[in-house]
Amino acid sequence: MIGSIHAWSTIASAFLASSVEAVEALTVVLAVGVVRGWRSALLGTVAALALLAGLVAVFGSALGSVPVALLQLVVGTLLLLFGIRWLRKAMLRSAGVIALHDEAAIYQEAVLALSGASASTLPNSRSKWDPIAIATAFKAVTLEGVEVIVIVIGLGAVRGLLGAASLGALAACLLVVAAGLVLHRPLARVPENSLKFVVGILMTAFGLFWFGEGVGLQWPYADAAILGLMAILAVASWLGITVAEHLGATGKRAAIRGGSA
């Protein structure tokens, strides 16, 4: 029962986190393909995927020789830092302190940037290789792909659930690519901030749990403690957002009073 909780939460976490990254990579690859041609966009994507596969092969085999306690400590720390970074950003966005991530706007920016560069460097025919397009697609897929690898290793390495985590990540990437193929435009309707909020909570909870186990703490109810940690983090985050929103409203009222005085 506890094992299946762990496996399913690992798959779900990897799926949700990887879908966020895949959506971000797809936005750039779509912009590159539309503006500079699909051949170069796809070459950059395939080259990045090959590099990522190499990284997975190297790190995947190296992980087996690391002692479990050390793995728990390192993975727990990295997962905690990764998760808390996402959670902080999602909280600030929910409270209206920073702007929401807008895939449509990012797509337009990328299209404009690539169109600007095209005047002097776009090949005459779209069938020719375009170094700018290849590099842009390669960079986007590599950056987002490295995040997916970190997520998969972080969630799956310690309990031998790399297969489950990889399955979740692969399903997310395939789903996002399929949606991109069908729609031919960025997936702007994906509730990116809500996903980031949920994933931030999941990864922070996993990070706390692994780090605790790494230093020798025995969590009550074993793996089920992750669910409790998620609940505590969700309540605390909600409180943080509420206070941050209240501060924003107070700041606006003060600004209005200051302006009218």
Binding site: M91, L92, V97, I98, I232, S237, G240, E245
Partner: peptide, 22 residues
């Protein structure tokens, strides 16, 4: 571990919110 991490996060978010919106 739990309170320290959550406390650090909340203080950071609230401080950022009060700085940005002041």
């Amino acid at each position: 571990l739990v309170a320290g991490t959550i406390g650090a996060l909340l203080v950071n978010v609230i401080r950022t919110a009060s700085k940005v919106k002041r």
